[in-house]
Design a protein around this nucleic acid. Sequence first.
RNA 1: GCGCGCGUAGCUCAGUUGGUUAGAGCGCUACCCUGAUAAGGUAGAGGUCCCAAGUUCGAAUCUUGGCGCGCGCACCA
Length: 1177
Amino acid sequence: MRLTPIRLQPLHRMFQPVRGKPDFPSMEAEIGRFWREGAIYQKSLDRRRGGKRFVFFEGPPTANGMPHPGHCLTRTIKDLYPRYRTMRGEYCERKAGWDTHGLPVEVEVCKELGIHSKAEIEAYGVEPFIHKCQESVWRYMKEWEALTERIGFWIDLSDAYVTYHRSFVESVWWALATLFDKGLLYQGHKIVWWWAQGGTALSSGEVGQGYKEVADPSVYVAFPLLDDAGRPTDRAVVAWTTTPWTLPSNHFAAVRADLDYVVLRDSSPESTAHTEARGASREVAGRAIREYVVAEPLAAALVEKTKRPLEIVGRLKGSDLVGRSYLPPFDTFRPDGPPASAARRDGGSEPAAWRVVAADFVTTDSGTGIVHVAPAFGEVDYGVLVEEQARFAPGDGPALLNCVAPDGTFTDAFPIGAGRFVKDCDRDITRDIKGRGLLVHQEQYVHDYPFCWRAENDPLIQYPRQSWFIRTSRFRDAMLANNAAIDWLPDHIKEGRFGNFLETNVDWALSRERYWGTPLPIWVCESTGKQEAVPSYAALLAKPGIAGTDVFEKAKAANPALSDDLAVHKPYIDAVTYDSPFASNSRMRRVPEVIDCWFDSGAMPFAQWGWPHAGDAAFRSQFPADFISEAIDQTRGWFYSQLAISTLLFGDNVLEDRGVLEDRGRPYPHPFRTCIVLGHMLGEDGQKMSKSRRNYKEPKVIFDTYGADALRWYFLAGQPPWTSIRYNERAIRESVPEFLLRLWNVYSFFVIYARIDGFDPSGMLDVPGELAHADLAKARGWRPAGERGELDRWMLSELNATAAEMVERLDRYDHFGAAARLSSLVEAVSNWFVRRSRDRFWAAGRADGGPETNPEKLDAYWTLYETLLAIAKLAAPFVPFVTEEIWQNLAARAFGGSARAPESIHLTTYPTGEPSLVDRDLVRWMALVREVASLGRAARAAEKLKVRQPLSKVEVILANPADGDASWLEEHADLVCDELNVKGFEICREPDRYISRSIQADLKKLGPRLGKDLPKARDAIAKADAAAVLAQLARDGRATIDWAGGSATLEPEELIVRTTAKPGWAAAEGSQAVVVIAKELTPALVAEGLVREVVHVVQSMRKSLDLDFTDRIELGFETTSADLRAALEAHQAVVATETLATRAAFEPVASGIAETHDIDGHPLTITIKKVPATKSG
RNA sequence: GCGCGCGUAGCUCAGUUGGUUAGAGCGCUACCCUGAUAAGGUAGAGGUCCCAAGUUCGAAUCUUGGCGCGCGCACCA
């Protein structure tokens, strides 16, 4: 045991002692306070002002729901890159934002009020309802802000954009007005997914969230065909539907023209009788349907289902059916008598309804190959109607048939269901059809059907509605081109999920017939119906004859707390009217709709600044984003809304025309260049996280238990960010010791001994700078790496190589790879540098640069100090708290005088690695020696020769030594001997004693050259005399291998030489070497081993007696073993030194504590007693 | 139904243009250290790389088809 005398000297600013067992959560709280009070984030920006911009967009979260661990992932990634780029010298503003509009907010308020339908909202009053919505938006604001700060997400919350704020709304108005003026915003009559109870259409994204598996009735219905005179025949086409409620609005039957159809004849007698008995429909009365027409591929299935004697009696093409009239299942809209004809554009005429048409969408996947077309309730159905209308003279074509009211109930046009919700009428409708003999078959059909995502029991229906659309489909190719220039991570998003979505783009259903959202800024002339869009509130106020603004003013007067932002919201904005420019004495009135809140979020790249009404400079410098990141669900959400709006609005050259983006250099992408798409976080059970299932912990609990750094490291280092990760508390817990604690232990070790040895950089360095390599070089007592020992040069090599690799990875957004490199660097410091440097830290002398300084010791300190600081910087974007703590103690506080170091690690520059400090050979050799040590231990373990037992010799055979490997190892014999507790080390001169060499083909190299001959060559090489081939290679530089039918001349690098230990030796083999341990034990070695064992036992006793490591002891031994006694006597000095014993004799120590131990089979009683401290140190 | 992703050790996950002996952490077992010490280290055991067929000299890796899981999409009439 070596003892460093402790003498405390007057200190400059010694490092503060470090707790061995860190309390990360409370430490993080303190760091958080320090950042807040010191305005460190602001300072990190100020420091980089003028630097290259790194533009980040915050995708606005909704603050009316509680944040969960998934949000922590997003916020961690969003924090990492801006922090990293800032440390790299770039200027990265981070403006927060909140998504505040839309259905989720309205539904929350409805729940609170205990109401549901639009009528109830109207009854409650739109004005108070809107006020409730605005308040509700901030419900969980505190939790969100707390989470943001607690996880260390640096973003400017004080200047957040808010989608309901007037400036934001006005930006959106500008965007909408621009689109309107370009003809890209239009009002269309379309089929939308309609939430009848809520009285609004929903976006596809909203619809997608509400699919549930349900069993619906599925019916096969006969549509009797008419003859040329318009009379019903006994032949019918059979259509299939899972929505019987759409049958009263039937308009066409669609077939595919090129498809084969068959006629099935029903020969069962009861079919006729049955139908006649009911005599239901007027025209069918008295007639039996005997023949059913269905698609040929589906006929067999239908026969099977109906279990009726149906025979094929005829065949025809779909085209033969096209144009035939039929009787619809209900006469809701059909007058009696033969079908009326309408005039076609081409001069001819034919019935406008209840006719068989040809359509490509007809498939034979299911059903009958004949499709019931109800244009009011299906998008493709509606398409058929539009096409048909185009064939007829204007005004004479088919009108839309619809007997369903917007509230989802049948109108009086359909008496069977009048006043009732359509889906509740399926049974009655089916019964009626059956009664009239038109029901061919019915069954239950299980499928997914959409329900309202906020009112889970309300099924959605497709419904025709006058609605506002954005003509995105016209920009499909432009959006694809824009997308092609974006760097997606993972890259399959580009061509896969997102690309596919763009390929199938449909116009954006923008309007919502709701209350809390950005009002659609379109005013309509009450007499002409002409429309115009208003781009701002100011533009509105400037309109002639403006009126109605007083409504808001009065409300404000009555309630001064009313937010001015509400002036641009319903109901106040609805009251604002002005003189029509289209007709005299007419007023312009706003349309009632608000817009899809996804448009808000997609407009944030400019709307966050209020652009173009304000914030021109900010927008110019902050567009497009270099980096955004959200979870995968945003492909159809924010990723799309941003891309679509930007592509439509800023196209290829609009921004250039405005003088924005002059230096962009390429037209696309905008508005973001790189997007990391995060995987979803699942609950502990692998299911979606849900509050009701309680399969995750609240973020706060994680922070309080493990800390934010632990969670961050778990996210960043655990897996690539796009894999869906299972929330796993154990994994979070385990991420602490693996990295954080290991780093902390090294730091703690350093501080303990730096304090002992007086290592105080501030006493040796006048200008600390950022304490990087070049700064430290100015310190007194600092020696250049080239003058330091090998271990120091190795450490600095690893450090600088790692920094370079990390930067390379982070620059391509591979934080997972960077974290792996960082982790192995910390492992190297902890398990090799510190361990191998202990002797130096414990050696005599000081490390304060004074007269007693031990230069090697000082080198060790400088090296570890530099390494720790650099690691802290490298790790700072990942784990900002613990690295700050380290920086505070080692740098900020240590240099707290007139010459200051940066006050926060986040104000320093990221290390990029200094190539001149990297010695590649040294790195390789150190890895080799570590492997030799590891193999030696493995060899010992296999022979049960514990490391405490010294052995005489270790021999190493290198498998494929490169130049200098062997001599380097020989020069480091002491190191190997020390690691393995052996007396001698040598590179084996007679390797053939211990090992045999075999050769193998290097398939990767030979494969491309030999192709099909490879197996023969491989076998020939394996069978060849390895020694002979190797000898030939050594002599000629090449060797020839023959096999039946061929031969090849091989270069040395085309062979792999494998070295295998021969049996009978204590050996272990690895990829680089075979290590052989001499297992023979001489009496002297055994004696040494016994002594080591005794020392070990004494040390354990010291520890169990809780002695301080400087306490001296007295030792007494008693043993009946002559061997043990002899060994102890021979090595008495060693025992005394190692255990800090002032005396070690073969007699009990008076009033000592005695323990009896078994020392490798030899009994030994040890008495131990602490010597009073006066004598020591 | 269509599309995207995933399936590797008991658990959580890596695996970089196809290449010979598939890795890490945790857990487990054994051992070491005892001056980072309620820490730390070393070693070991543990795998039909979901299944099948194909391409290839060679497949965890590429192709196709299954199966399972997750997510997304909707012309589910």
